[in-house]
Structures are given as structure tokens and as C-alpha cells.
Amino acid sequence: MTITQLTYVLAIAEHKNFTKAAEKCFVTQPTLSTQIQKLEEELDILIFDRGKKPIELTEVGRKIVHQARNIVNESDRIQDIVDQQKGFIGGEFRIGIIPTIMPTLLPMFLKAFIKKYPKVKLKIEELTTEDIIQRINDGHLDAAIAATPLENSNIKERVLYFEPFVGYIPEHHRLYKKKTIDVSDLEIEDMLLLEDGHCFRDGVINLCKAFKDQTNENFQLESGSIETLIKLSNEGLGMTLLPYLHTVELNENLNHNLRYFNEPSPAREVSIIYHKSELKMQIIDALHNVISGIIRGAIAFQNVKIISPLAK
């Protein structure tokens, strides 16, 4: 039994197809199939049910995949241990970023990070918090940037910054004439929200419910993007809340619709998160230092109240 064979098993389990798995592993399909067959013969079991389309794991195959994932992940850590001992900051680093953070934060730090740490090969994916946690636990991500706290015993969190919520209120809305707004002004029924699956949506709902008994969740409209929420709001379909960094580059013609909260401003906590057994700490430290240094000049808010991103 070899690490290579177990890597092939994981690839087939993920793609449910021998051809796609071979492409992922950069080998020919006959090579991959031969190694899987040798492993099955050695163990005297079938890992895959090849009669199903797509290919499925057998009952024992599911248990083998679970253990194989642990073995392959741990084998990868040997190089991490060496790099850490040498203080080497380089190699591949897989990071996930949630959709409401990716478009604003990534352009702010990526160029500076690459310039300072040219030997690090970042592989960046836009993922929901749920997918991020799953991939960190499965060993498919080294770290992620997400709203916290997540209250997950396997995940460590290092705070990067606090990002206030900002009201976006169109003309003719009941709150438009107010210079600043208070959380008690919010009504869940006239709030435009992101679609289910976005933690910023859950934060907005938690914010509204924290100050009023608002259990009715029959929202007017939901959207997959903050940009669409702004457009819908401009059409007079309701107000919305935006993360502060989304307001920084907002068209000047729309700035008159922004309303800041009375202090303490409701805000989300944004952190770099990683598995408690993560070993690439030198790269996590580098990311934390670069992002914290850049964001310090963009967000000056101090008196904030952190709103949970967890659905309640």
C-alpha cells in the first residue's frame, strides 16, 4: 500500500470518474486503474462499485476513504514541518474567502502579499462559510478568511479587523431623512437580504432580532450579490445593509444613500481561520501581518458591537 495509491483513491472518490481522477492526478487512466486494482487485490476487497454510474464507494470503501484522507493529509505535513523548522515562507497555500469579503479585501492585499512573499503560491477560492469549514476539516484548505466567531472546536481564529454595517437607504424610504440610524430603527420586513447561505445575511437577521421580537421572515426580496441589492434598493424596493468596505468605492452619486449607525456600530468580526493542527503557521502569520497592516488605514472604527454570523 502506498501514499500514491491512497491519493488516487481520494481523487476517484471526489470525481466519481476514473478519467477525471487521472487528469487530476496527472497520470494516464490505465496507470491509475492498475494501481487501484493492485490496492484492492492487496486488501482483498472492492473499494469502488464500478457497476454504478457515476461510480460509487462500497460500504468498506467509504471507511477506507475516511482513513486515506487522514493518512494523505498527515503525509503532506512532513514537508510543512521541514519548512516551518527552516523558517521558509513558500510553497502552495490554499485559502478560501467568503463572497461578501472576496471582492473588497482581495484587491487590497493580494499584490502587496505576492510582492513581499513571491515564493508563496496562493490558490484562492470563493466559498461559503459552510463549505470552508468542511474543506478545512477535510484538509482541502490551509486557511480561510471569514466572519467570526464560528464556535467550532476544530477551527482556530485570528482576528484581522472589525467591519461595521452601513445602512443603504433610498429616497422616499421612511429612514432617508435621518442623518444616522439606530438598530432599533430596523424592520426586518422592509430589508433586502442576500440569499440563504451567506453569513452576512445571517448577521443582518441576528442584528434585527437582537433588538426586536421579529420572528417573521417573509422578506420582500433576496439576491445573490450585494450589487444587486443596491440596484433593487435604488428602485425603491426597500433598504439594505452593506459591509463597510463595499461602501468605500461606491459611486459618488449613491453616497447620499449611506447612513452610519449610532455607536456602538454593529459590525462583523473578520478573521483568518485554520485547523487547530495546521502547520503552515509562517504563511498564516505573513497573511495576517500584511492584511492587518493594510486594513488599518481603511477602517478606523473602534467603538463597535460584534454581530454573530451564525444562523440562529
Rank of each mutant, 00 (worst) to 15 (best):
E74C: 07
Y8A: 03
L232C: 07
P54R: 00
T180C: 10
I306E: 04
H246Q: 09
D190P: 03
L229R: 05
K178H: 08
G203Y: 01
F301K: 12
A143W: 02
K24Q: 14
M102T: 07
G139Y: 05
L192I: 12
Q134S: 11
N70D: 09
I95R: 02
G297E: 11
H172T: 12
D285M: 09
M191P: 00
L254K: 12
D131P: 01
H246R: 10
Q85H: 13
E56Q: 15
I133G: 00
G238C: 06
V159I: 15
V9L: 12
G236H: 05
S223G: 03
N73M: 10
P266T: 04
L110E: 08
I98F: 03
N70E: 13
E125M: 10
S225R: 12
E217A: 10
N255P: 00
T228S: 14
V82Y: 12
K179F: 07
T2S: 15
V159S: 08
Q214S: 13
I12G: 00
E126I: 09
L194Q: 02
A146I: 04
E42G: 07
A210C: 09
L193R: 04
R135A: 06
G96D: 05
K111Y: 11
A311R: 15
L186M: 13
I306Y: 05
N73R: 13
P103A: 08
L242V: 01
I97E: 01
R259H: 09
I284M: 06
E74V: 08
E217Y: 09
H15T: 11
E42S: 12
R94P: 02
F93M: 06
P264E: 07
R259I: 08
V304R: 06
R201I: 08
K179W: 05
P118Y: 06
P309N: 06
E125T: 08
A147V: 06
E125V: 08
K111T: 14
N262Y: 11
L150Y: 04
T4C: 07
L194N: 00
N218F: 08
Y117R: 06
M191Y: 04
M191H: 05
H288W: 10
N137V: 08
Y168A: 01
L221A: 10
G139M: 05
E252H: 12
F165Q: 02
T31E: 07
G236K: 07
I295N: 01
Q302C: 07
L141M: 06
F301A: 14
C208H: 07
R135N: 15
L241V: 05
I155H: 03
Q214T: 10
K111E: 15
Q134N: 10
A112E: 15
R201A: 06
L6R: 14
L127Q: 04
M281L: 15
P54F: 00
G293M: 05
L237R: 13
L242P: 00
A210H: 10
N257C: 15
N262K: 15
E157S: 06
F26N: 11
Q79A: 14
A311D: 07
T129E: 14
V60Q: 13
A68M: 03
L193E: 01
L175R: 05
N257P: 02
G203W: 01
T215G: 11
M108R: 12
S265C: 11
T34W: 10
E151S: 10
V72Q: 04
G293K: 08
A68T: 01
H198G: 02
L105Y: 03
N289D: 13
A210Q: 14
N257G: 02
